[in-house]
Nucleic acid binder design. Sequence first.
DNA 1: ATCGCGTAAATTGTATGCAGCATGCAAAAA
DNA 2: TTTTTGCATGCTGCATACAATTTACGCGAT
Lengths: 243, 243
Amino acid sequence: MNGSNEAHVQQKSETPKGRKSPKLKRMGLHERAAARMRTMIIRGELPPGSQTQETRLSKELGVSRTPLREAMKVLAAEGLIELRPNRSPRIAGLAVEGIWELFEALAGIERLAAELAAVRATERDLARLRTLQTRMEGHHRNGKLDDYFAINGEIHNTIVRMARNTPLREAHETLISRAKRARYLALGADRRWSNSVDEHASILAALEARDSEAAGRLLGAHVRQTGIALLETLAPKPKLSAA
Amino acid sequence: MNGSNEAHVQQKSETPKGRKSPKLKRMGLHERAAARMRTMIIRGELPPGSQTQETRLSKELGVSRTPLREAMKVLAAEGLIELRPNRSPRIAGLAVEGIWELFEALAGIERLAAELAAVRATERDLARLRTLQTRMEGHHRNGKLDDYFAINGEIHNTIVRMARNTPLREAHETLISRAKRARYLALGADRRWSNSVDEHASILAALEARDSEAAGRLLGAHVRQTGIALLETLAPKPKLSAA
DNA sequence: ATCGCGTAAATTGTATGCAGCATGCAAAAA
DNA sequence: TTTTTGCATGCTGCATACAATTTACGCGAT
């Protein structure tokens, strides 16, 4: 909790909390507000389905309503909040159905990314991937959950970037932010560490072999498996209409 | 004392062009502004790379800067305009490279959509698709270019909706709006009408046969072909790094 | 003539005030 | 007691006023 009761303007050098982005460029208030809200939503501090009054939030974040409303529009476009006319915005719900759709779409995007990456990856790309894989295996052995997840996510992002396709990467980003929220819900849900690590290894092998089809198929299946595992921890009774 | 009593708003109730949605819900000013700008950008009335001053546009659209700025954020999220700090927003560029990436991503999304649709389509869905196909063939024979394009787009949208995956549909929508802009540039560029019609027929057949893999493969290839044809009319010398 | 610098104009970013709509409570009628 | 109508309140939507930042321009020095 930050100082909501005092000090609305700590404009100077409030560390814009580069979560994982090393780029510390100074952002406008609406960007900061959006970033702040994004992490609040992902962490569940703003629970799904809850309503967010502009005035309240603006005071809480220390900005006026104008930039906050702009931030709302952005988050709505990302699918994190839901805007209804003349009503308080609502944090997007997180139904089981929706989560599965999310991972399904994500799997499709990452499949394509892997297919392209298999063709377009440079040796540097592959080297970086190998490094990440090694580090992830280390965290896996040591049981470092947070680090494991961080590297895991970075591997996926790296593969998507290796596809050298900006629109694809952007679409991936927005879906990922939503998926992270679900993942946070079922914190540390992924008990299939071992499977996951092995799958990543297979994917890496396919990429190194420049096997487009295999890389895509494996990564797609991997993402779907992750989604299924997530759903199983959330709802003991998974009645998926799997594809 | 505001300019609303007389002003330049000649089109008070400009039908906000419900894309194909029969729901004519009255939208807020920022939504209307966004819709208006969207079509202006697609039609090239706001040329790629051009700068848009808030004050100018707000007067031109007959709204104040506040809702206009909100609209800007939305369009930026859709990738139609580019926002830089303390500078005039810029209409997103339309380089050949970027267009190809766009169609590549679109092909991936529609491939997945077709795969899912092949499994999930109801008989009603397929019937609707057959109707659309027939109508499109009619427009094709009669050389009705506009109608042909309209139906064509609707077929693609229908297939995506048949996948019953909201995030996927949303991602598709934003990419489509960008693609339309490119398509408008090379107006009536698609001289491969006949091919296109045949490809659609094949896709429909695959869907009816519930052949997931074929439907996805065919639709993906079809979209890529469309992109290639588009690029060939834009740049006589296509130096694509095709996949 | 060119570069540097400082001031002014223009433009974006933020805050605030006001009007309209929605919701809840209270009062009146059945 | 139950239902309906009117009113009060709070919140969103928009416009405008204000602050900060960038850009343009002119003047003087090298």
